[in-house]
Design a protein around this nucleic acid. Structure first.
Lengths: 132, 132
DNA sequence: CTCATGGTTAAGCATGCACTTAACCGTAGG
DNA sequence: CCTACGGTTAAGTGCATGCTTAACCATGAG
């Protein structure tokens, strides 16, 4: 149930894959910052920072507004939440399977058709994006 | 506090950045699978699948054992947990900041030196990896 | 107006990455 | 032994990515 809309997962995780982008997020959790502040923090050009910010914004990890000629960036929680939920879903699914498996082993402790628990469910999962 | 050891974060998030690797994880939460099963699921070569599995293993997202000539893969929860915790830390840090900000706005509602809450904490965070 | 500051955009480049093919190894089964 | 199957490894290829420089736009200060 609630397979939700893991469409954006690709964007979010791709954004999180870069150390500098994670550093931006980490910084912004402490409070808003301007583009050049972030650039100084990362030790890269302002141009590079802007590119990172574009990625972070399209994945809904960061929001930003322009006041005068200064752009101020801050955290957008929706992206973080999405990633967090995807991970939690995977972990809980895995844990529930272990629970069921424990039940079976507890009830009929004699019969164990062992690791052949595989491949008996053809396509229940429905991939998120079968790649482009 | 508890800045822990976000060293492996780079590996984990890089691993999670690929849609096919996430598909592997998603599949393995339902139960173990062999290499060729995963290859068939992804619609790519067995060779490509092995490469993905190497990435997933070094980031502690998947474990695997070889029995005879068949390698069986399953979830390794430690990687998932690490990623989940990093995200949770960022989100909670951000939320706590909002709380403190709410306190200030509640107590001394008159004085607001507004959005200048920025840049007054030079380097409290200590980057995880200042990039190679 | 003029200059400086903060940001945006466009190439260009070098590296990394996902995938393929192809040769190869090890374990069954006949 | 011989063949088939599951997996591993090594090149090689094409595309994406992260960064830089450089030209450019817009706003604020003198």
């Amino acid at each position: 149930m609630l397979n939700h809309e893991w469409a954006g997962a690709d964007r979010v995780f791709h954004a999180l894959a870069d150390a500098n982008r994670r550093a931006i997020i980490q910084r912004l959790t402490r409070g808003p910052a301007t583009v050049s502040e972030l650039a100084r923090l990362l030790g890269v050009t302002v141009a590079a920072t802007v590119q990172h910010l574009q990625v972070l914004q399209t994945s809904e990890l960061v929001r930003s507004e322009k006041a005068g000629r200064v752009r101020t960036c801050q955290i957008d929680p929706s992206g973080l939440r999405r990633a967090e939920e995807w991970l939690r879903l995977q972990r809980t699914t895995w844990e529930h399977r272990l629970d069921r498996l424990g039940d079976v082993l507890g009830e009929s402790a004699a019969d164990h058709s062992t690791t052949t628990t595989t491949s008996d469910d053809p396509s229940t999962t429905s991939r998120e994006e079968p790649r482009s």
